[in-house]
Design a binder for these strands. Structure first.
Lengths: 329, 329
DNA sequence: AGCAATTTCTGGCAATTTTCAACAAGACGT
DNA sequence: ACGTCTTGTTGAAAATTGCCAGAAATTGCT
């Protein structure tokens, strides 16, 4: 395919033989560049291509994950703010995103941090329960491809009718896809019309089976939502303003992984809970590592309540939010 | 400590507040640079320091292993030459170093490749038997620091009196040190003066214990030596020319992990074997992953014999050697 | 406190990398 | 066989990074 047709027409082709490399050019270029420290020119010369092509090759290698640049996230854990927040918030682990980064949306930046941490923490037989949210979605997109066939990713809440770009199904399947893990979606609506329907549904073998799986979760991953102003809960069609108001009247300030709570961490319930298909909170609390990811000024009170309720074990947030939380906790 | 003394003498200090970052500046810089893709200028601005300092910070981060750049070695395994050699050589795995790299010595370059592969393959409870050789020594130096407290690194051959810079002790302890693993040296001479001394020594509790440990090896790591011309065996004072000649007369062409063999893979023995303190070959062959590392034109026949003798399971070599081996196998 | 040694930081220049717009080659439909 | 679209390549310009030698700050010592 790449045979020498130097004797075809004009013989003014490259005089040095282009060096018979294996098929995987990006890999070879990457090795010579990153491991042996050659300049792009030198590689270009050896491969018989232009500098620019070497650059493209290297870019491809980075994109395809042939070369990976990793930052040791345990360092982020050791940073002073993380330690303070970890102690004040009663957490097992806490990671704080440096302030002053790129202009990208905060949830994308926190999501990326979460991705790096998750990658590093995943063990082979993990069962990961995934809730939903914008930040969780960002995380899923920022995950670098990996091969973890022993891992199971399971959906924690039921699905929604409305299609929006960070639905429970999408979050779950995205993460599973990146990880090359088993993906177990919950094939049931997130909200049903009346309590007896919930009871019936929960008895369905397939659903029951799913909740049995969820009980084996080793990790869960979820975001937090605040309740005041326009929220994701309404936008996504999960709830109506009216229902939300009922929770707020009872003092709820936040919502995470399916439960509402007030700033003191008391779980708030209304009739809605009886129609909401979600992992029971007793089971949820038993999961060893419950990772909450999210940040932003609006969410501070919500996160405070979430921490008091001890829904999360591990918190991933940004510097400003962390500082505010440290002040009020 | 870093308080504002802007009102001390001259007020021409930095007007923008230097941004209150955590203590670990290199880490923050690294995150912003590698994860968020900011330019060094932008980071300098946000941190209130000069570009050059950001550069230094990043360098420090790289040096200290806060950021790591890795190449997925499994790709090298999939390269066409590797696959061919793996099949022809009856190997479990085979890795081939790209040709045309830096001008560094071949054993250093192969050692680096070996280091990357070893890092990636090490599991938590491994017991790694380490023989000696220049390439193994290079590997040990190229290993990046890791924390594997569950790993044991054990010396496969006895030590030598002469001190040279790639002795069994050094290879073993170097590797263990990099890995933060347990280091078990064999506190016995590599060669004793007569067979009965070997018998006696092997009965010593400490030695016996060591060989029991070796029997539990999950991996071994060793190089190959050719026998013609000036060899490491003589240089290191392990053997005399005369002894070597005895092996060569019987057809031996190579030496690896303590055994001599001919090109067909038959193990060659002389009286020397009865004075050589080394892991018994029956035990050696039982180790699940036997990693041989080495390359170079001189070694081709030796590697051929080594492969035929099935001493190795996994081979790490360079492109030229791999091509030659494919031709003759 | 005063001075010298040492460390850390900086400005600017050189080298390297990245981008870009134009161009060549192959694939495809007509 | 012809244009057209896609894909990949290139040289040169623009941007970014790497480096060094001198400046500032810090430290250690008397």
């Amino acid at each position: 395919m790449r045979a020498n047709r130097a004797d075809d027409k004009v013989a003014k082709r490259k005089p040095p033989p282009p060096m018979q490399f294996g098929a995987d050019q990006p890999l070879w270029a990457a090795w010579l560049y990153y491991e042996e420290g050659l300049k792009q020119d030198e590689i270009a010369e050896r491969l018989g291509i232009s500098r620019a092509s070497v650059f493209n090759l290297l870019q491809k290698a980075r994109d395809e994950g042939i070369v990976t640049i990793t930052i040791d996230p345990t360092r982020l854990e050791r940073a002073d703010l993380s330690v303070e927040l970890k102690e004040k918030g009663g957490l097992l682990e806490c990671y704080v995103l440096p302030a002053g980064g790129s202009a990208a949306a905060l949830y994308d930046r926190i999501g990326r941090l979460g991705a790096r941490i998750l990658e590093q923490k995943i063990e082979n037989d993990d069962v990961i329960g995934v809730a939903w949210g914008r930040t969780v979605m960002s995380l899923s997109k920022a995950l670098s491809p990996a091969n973890k066939p022993g891992v199971t990713v399971a959906q924690v809440t039921g699905s929604s009718i409305a299609t929006y770009d960070f639905s429970p199904e999408l979050c779950t399947s995205n993460i599973a896809a990146r990880l090359n893990a088993r993906c177990v979606n919950l094939h049931a609506p997130g909200v049903v019309s009346n309590p007896s329907m919930k009871t019936l549904l929960m008895q369905e073998p397939i659903i029951e089976q799913h909740f049995t799986l969820l009980r084996q979760c080793t990790k869960t991953l979820f975001g937090v939502t605040h309740l005041s102003g326009p929220t994701l809960l309404e936008d996504s069609g999960v709830m109506t303003e009216e229902l939300l108001l009922q929770y707020q009247k009872k003092g709820a300030v936040g919502f995470a992984s399916g439960y509402f709570f007030d700033p003191d961490g008391t779980i708030i319930r209304t009739g809605f809970d009886d129609r909401h298909i979600v992992m029971p909170i007793e089971d949820f609390i038993n999961v060893p590592r419950r990772i909450c990811i999210g940040g932003g000024a609006e969410k501070i009170t919500a996160i405070q309540g979430m921490l008091k309720a001890a829904l999360a074990n591990v918190l991933i947030t940004d510097q400003d939010t962390a500082r505010s939380l440290c002040r009020i906790l």
